[in-house]
Structures are given as C-alpha cells and as structure tokens.
Design a binder for these strands. Structure first.
Lengths: 193, 193
DNA sequence: AAACGCACTTGACCTGCATCAAGAACGCTC
DNA sequence: GAGCGTTCTTGATGCAGGTCAAGTGCGTTT
C-alpha cells in the first residue's frame, strides 16, 4: 500500500476530475501501491501486458519502440502526469513499446483488475477514467499532428515551451528521437539560440 | 432502423467477437441505424463530438486533419471495417479530425449513448467494445511505428500488401498524404514497378 | 587522480524527398 | 461531345536533415 503522502497525491490527482465521499475514498485509496525503480530500469517490457495505471510521484520515464537496433522515443512521463503503456492497459493486449525509468522513479499505481472492479462500485470513477484516457488520446493526437505538419525547428520550439524542464531531466538524444530527428540536428538547433 | 441485410451484417460483425443469445440480439440489433452519404460529403466535421460508432456497409471514407490550407490524411475505412472518429467517440471530446465519404457510403451506426446503455444490459458486449478499441489502437500504433522507422518506399510496399484494392478506390493524393509523402513522390514510386 | 565510457558538439558531405512547373489524361457538367 | 476542372505524370532544382567522423567534456569506476 502507498505511504501517507502517496495516498494524498493520488487523492488530489483524482480530485481534479471527480468528488468522492469519504466512504468512497476509503474504497479507492487502499488499492494504490507505491512502486520504485532504479535509473534505467525497465518498468514494462515489450511483449508484456500492462497491468498498471500510474501517477508519477518522482522521476521521469520514457516510452520507446525498438526496431533493428534503433530506438524511437514515443513519449515521456514526469511529476504529476500519468505513466504507463496506455494502449496495452486499455486493451490488455501485449505492448509493442517499452516503459523505462530515465531517472530513479516512484510510481503510484493501481492494477487493471482493481480499477475495473472500482468502476463497478464507485461509478463516479468512470468519469475519471474517461478524462484521463482523453488526455492520453489528445496527447498522442497532438504529437501526431505536429510530426506531420511542422518542421524540426518548430517542433523543438513547441516542446521547449510546453516542457522546458525536460532538457535538464533526460538525455538530449531521447528528446531528439521523440521529436523525430537525429541527435546532431537537435544539437545544432539548440546551438543557434 | 437498419434494413434486414444491414442487421445481418451487424450481427456477423459482432459475432466475430462474442456470442449472444437471441434475446440479447433483440436488444442489440434494433439500435443500429443505416446512414447514407454522398461522395465527398462530410460525415463528422472538425469540432464535432463523434456520436456514432459505425460499421462500413458500402463505400470508402477517410479521416484527415486540416492545417493552413493543407490536409493530412490519417486513415481510411472501407468494407467491413469500423468507421468513425474513435478518439472523439471514446472520450466524447470535440474532434480535431474530419471524417469524409470518399465514395458514396452507407454506414451501419450505433449512438454513443445507446452503446453505453447496452454495456449495462448486455455485459458480453464489453468484450466486443474492448476488442474493437484494441484494433483501432493497434492500427494507429502500427502506422506510427511505420512512419517513424521506414522509408517512403517500404511504407508504400506495405500498404499495397495490406490493402491492394485501396488504389482503385481513393485518389492517389490521399494515399500519398496518408503515407506522409507528396503526391509526386507517390507517383514516382508507382512508376518504377 | 587516472582511465574509461558515454553524451554532446561541430564540421563536411550526401541524398531523399519536397517544391515548382508544365503537360497529359481523366472524369463531370451542361 | 465540347469544355473545364481535377488528378496524375514527368522533369528540373533545391534544401532540410541524415550520416560519418573526429574531437571535447563529464561523470563513474577503481
């Protein structure tokens, strides 16, 4: 079970979407667990079915895809945001992606089966489930649109606006990969500022 | 309500995922409606919330995104496959995409509210809902991975393997856009075969 | 503190694909 | 079936960004 601060963080994250009664919180909160990972530890491997939906308590994680020796970074998760392989979590099909801790990380997680059961006993949670899924969908769609319609330069600018701290937290090569450009191009873009 | 053939098609599409009793079919089938669209008619506009989940009875549709005068094609739907703006349908948030009939189209559709209600009264349908969502997710992820990791040539080959008939059905410029290349490049790739 | 590895920078080169442009071949409409 | 718009082809040109290579700095290990 999560620590006291952990439970508080889960409560405040969910509270942004729905109000629950004290009795309901007592059903919801005990199901969340605290999970810790070392730097570079793989949290969910390719081929695994994602069992957990998580809120990031500490650290940064990345989602990437492997193909003939290369890696393509698909997304990041950090303080306060959701973490996990959402498509695999939702569909309970094996993931083709890897979730890895970039920095030492602590996640507050709930199991798929527990969440499903909660949907039955605490109907308001459905709204939470829908809205967090919406955020994930929108995030993916925004990235897809940006990749399709913007040059490297502009994609860089936008990411720096949205997540200026990211640069301090993760290797530049991962950000470059996320933006769909080589590490060299990324470096050059930074230089001319 | 749908025609007799329409209901048969809905039944066989759902039957691939779950078995229902006759009594259950009688709850499910009457909620599906037949909707017809002219060539080039917009089915779901940008900004709309997607109300419908559909099975394609006839015709081809495309999903695209508009930005400063350009269009980026995100996907196609045709005979037997699902159609709709799935992320907007699932999240009930306004769509940033457009769904348009490329050829005259007939869709067999169920409303979001009706489907939600059915999940309550026919629990087996949840499985259907999950599996069709899985297909959509997987389709999106496959395309994302292909865009990221393959040169234009190979993306072209793969699409032609997967959907050889597509070329007869929709303008080449839309396929080119879907593959993330210019119409000219697409034309040249075809020529050298 | 020496030594190794890894991330980052910078330069030179090269190429895949976009863009521009101009013609050919289809549909539609009247 | 004449005319017009739209789609498709083909050629010429240009450039964004990938690749290769060599060097620099830093954090870790021993």
């Amino acid at each position: 079970m999560a620590t006291f601060e952990g439970m508080e963080q889960v409560k405040s994250a969910i509270s942004r979407y729905v109000d629950l009664t004290e009795a309901q919180w007592e059903q919801v909160l005990p199901l969340w667990k605290e999970r810790s990972f070392d730097k570079k530890e793989v949290i969910t491997a390719s081929g695994d079915v994602e069992r957990w939906f998580s809120i990031v308590k500490e650290g940064v994680q990345r989602i990437y895809f492997e193909f003939d020796g290369q890696e393509a970074c698909i997304g990041f998760a950090y303080g306060g945001s959701w973490s996990g392989i959402f498509d695999s979590f939702v569909t309970q099909a094996p993931s083709r992606f890897v979730l890895q801790a970039v920095t030492p990380s602590v996640l507050l997680s709930i199991e798929h089966t527990d969440l499903q059961r909660l949907y039955g006993s605490v109907p308001q949670l459905e709204r939470f489930g829908r809205l967090m899924l919406e955020e994930v969908f929108v995030g993916r769609a925004v990235r897809e649109i940006e990749q399709l319609t913007m040059p490297a330069q502009e994609r860089y600018d936008r990411l720096m606006d949205r997540s200026p701290h990211l640069l301090q937290l993760v290797p530049q090569k991962d950000i470059a990969s996320y933006l769909g450009m080589s590490a060299e191009t990324f470096s050059r873009l930074r230089a001319q500022k």
